[in-house]
Design a protein around this nucleic acid. Sequence first.
DNA 1: CGGTCTCTTGACGGAGTTCAAAGCTAGTGG
DNA 2: CCACTAGCTTTGAACTCCGTCAAGAGACCG
Lengths: 193, 193
Amino acid sequence: MHPLLQENLTSHIDLTEEELERIDGLFQQKTLKKKHYLLQEGETSQGLAFVVSGLLRSYKVDSSGFEHVIQFAPAGWWMTDMKSFSRQTPAELFIEALEPAEYLFITKSKLDFAFKAFPKLEKHFRLLAENAVIAYQQRLIGNLSQPAIERFANFCQLYPTLTQTLPHKQIAAFIGVTPEFFSKMINNTPLPG
Amino acid sequence: MHPLLQENLTSHIDLTEEELERIDGLFQQKTLKKKHYLLQEGETSQGLAFVVSGLLRSYKVDSSGFEHVIQFAPAGWWMTDMKSFSRQTPAELFIEALEPAEYLFITKSKLDFAFKAFPKLEKHFRLLAENAVIAYQQRLIGNLSQPAIERFANFCQLYPTLTQTLPHKQIAAFIGVTPEFFSKMINNTPLPG
DNA sequence: CGGTCTCTTGACGGAGTTCAAAGCTAGTGG
DNA sequence: CCACTAGCTTTGAACTCCGTCAAGAGACCG
């Protein structure tokens, strides 16, 4: 099993070597080239991805054609369209590789099997979902109460490594401003001295 | 056990009469008067509330003193500050009764015991958390891509019964506008005829 | 009745958008 | 290895949605 996945799975629950081996067998290793899609709007999510290297993003295209980034997933993060995955309905989101990515993929039916075979996993994924609730709630509060420059500061804390490497356009689409305004905003911050 | 709680618990998993009885024993019945608090900022959440009657809301007070409603909880809904509850850290949110409320309360330690005694419950609460993730994601997308009037339309679909009874001020604090702008907005919608 | 809270209305202000144009960067194909 | 194109970034002016401040009219409650 990939060490990142093992570290993730055993962060909340104990699993034996054998259990880890059998769980590992349920995942497929996959790759995605830059600008290629793991999921497109209208498709139904086949499963859950655990990113091992590279970078994925999920985003929504609104009725005006504007993109809104829901999540970035660098190595060690899970990625899916939760609504489409959980309810097996057509996706509203796109999931795309911003950088060439390797990931471990588990289908919904195999994950459901894993929950039966290893009930401890329910707790792990419950805690992952609770953490996601907390993260979304923090972001919602930020969007409701903070100006764009502070949301950008929060972004830098949430994704410190991505802040340097990501195109500004993608950061703008995450914090909820236009690329034009983002450019003006960061170039108008008064420098010390 | 209260029929609303039984309906909730058995919506995703099967539980015997005996299991339901023993789970019921872990809850305390409580009431809250109008404008009284179940949780205040800075306190640590003691547990999880299942509303049986009345109406609760959770909200954040931002650095300018402005209130932002995170959630309304009428009968049949769960309510907590997930971050404070899950991590046992000081709450950022207030939980308050907008209408006199009855609720069933389970402490974190009793819920943790319940997860050990009835592992099936993990699945139920995992699915609840997944649904919360989906709801927050939908709301986030709405805040990023829709003007206030459309967010209000979404609100009317999410809480159809509350739309009639709630003070406009509370709805404004949920969809993310000032009461003044909310008033102008709904009084400027052109009437047919 | 008085006081507090909600709702409304108006004038003004500001954060962020839209549209347009230009320079820059990077990937791509021949 | 160069030329071309497509996408990213910047800048400016006009504009919009929504907030702020202020004042007044109702509504509820002790």
